[in-house]
């Protein structure tokens, strides 16, 4: 009896909250089925790019159409959705995608990482550790990590199949030869489960170690390139490097000006036209939670001094 009344409650919630004339979560059920199939295959072969029939979405390619289609296919009425863009919950892309699902699926939305069951993200992984009952969906512009060095799709597929990844190190070699260190700072290639080399989408390399053995399921959707790939929970993800130039993440000499954190990914914000600047957490929810707990940073930017750039 209780189950049925629960169902009734859900359907009434659907009715009152979602837009008339649209299917649940916008996509039609055949499309969702197709995307779920691709997603299952992707999970079964960690890091392998599965082609899928990407649909037109009510926003342009490059704005997260791949991520939205994946989210639309896995979301249910009981889910709680969080959407971030460069770590922030309050940027245009994040706000609009969140509102899109609130309207078409009637789901709860949240800004709190630990409350979310699905997190759709552009270019960041939240600072808070993800749990095994969460799914993170990445928006991906260019899924093929070999593309810049090998333009032929036929050839890149062969290279993936035969694990011929020597050329990936050519890019790193070039960095070191020209700049003395690896300067690739985002979209840093990783090898998943000792086989497929994968583009982690343009997240900063700061986030790469978080992908390794992550308890949450990681799904990647590329709308324009029509590819879905995935990293199942607790899977080995290794960033490519040289023996004598091991993988390193970014570090900052400053801490967050608002919450004082020195362990999070910081954005540099220019505050006037005289060169003053401050560093703040890119993950807005992480920063707000810390401030709510009473942490404080150094606050307003200090005056710009010549020695800062020396």
């Amino acid at each position: 009896m209780t189950a049925i009344s629960g169902e009734q409650k859900k359907s009434s919630r659907l009715k009152e909250k979602t837009l008339d004339g649209y299917n649940f979560a916008y996509l039609d059920d055949q499309t969702k089925r197709m995307i779920r199939r691709a997603t299952l295959k992707a999970v079964a072969i960690p890091g392998y790019q599965v082609p899928f029939g990407s649909r037109e979405m009510p926003l342009p390619f490059g704005w997260g159409t791949g991520g939205i289609q994946v989210t639309a296919s896995i979301i249910g009425i009981d889910d709680t959705l969080k959407v971030i863009d460069q770590g922030a919950d309050d940027t245009t892309n994040a706000v609009n995608i969140r509102r899109f699902f609130a309207k078409t699926a009637g789901v709860e939305t949240t800004e709190n990482t630990s409350d979310a069951s699905i997190i759709q993200t552009r270019h960041r992984i939240p600072e808070a550790k993800l749990k095994s009952d969460q799914i993170i969906v990445y928006q991906v512009p260019i899924p093929e990590p070999l593309r810049w060095i090998e333009p032929r799709e036929e050839e890149t597929r062969k290279m993936h199949a035969l694990t011929e990844y020597g050329v990936m190190h050519v890019g790193l070699y070039e960095n070191i030869a020209h700049f003395g260190k690896v300067t690739t700072s985002y979209n840093y290639p990783v090898q998943v489960n000792d086989h497929y080399v994968m583009s982690p989408s343009p997240i900063p390399k700061f986030d790469n170690p978080k992908m390794d053995e992550m308890p949450a399921l990681q799904l990647f959707g590329a709308g324009r390139e029509k590819r879905i790939y995935a990293v199942p929970p607790y899977t080995k993800v290794k960033s490519l490097d040289f023996e004598d130039h091991p993988f390193e993440i970014e570090s900052w000499s400053e801490c967050c000006a608002l919450c004082g954190s020195s362990s999070s990914f910081l954005d540099e914000v220019i505050t006037d036209d005289k060169g003053s600047r401050m560093f703040v957490c890119s993950d807005s929810n992480f920063c707000a939670n810390r401030r709510a707990k009473g942490h404080k940073g150094p606050g307003l930017p200090r005056k710009f001094e010549i020695k800062d750039i020396e």
Binding site: V167, V170, Y173, I176, A177, H245
Partner: peptide
């Protein structure tokens, strides 16, 4: 670069020391 052109074949057969 020229150096990377020469090094590529080494990297392709597994050289991982810059």
């Amino acid at each position: 670069s020229a150096g990377a052109n020469v090094g590529e074949r080494l990297m392709a057969i597994g050289a991982r020391n810059y």
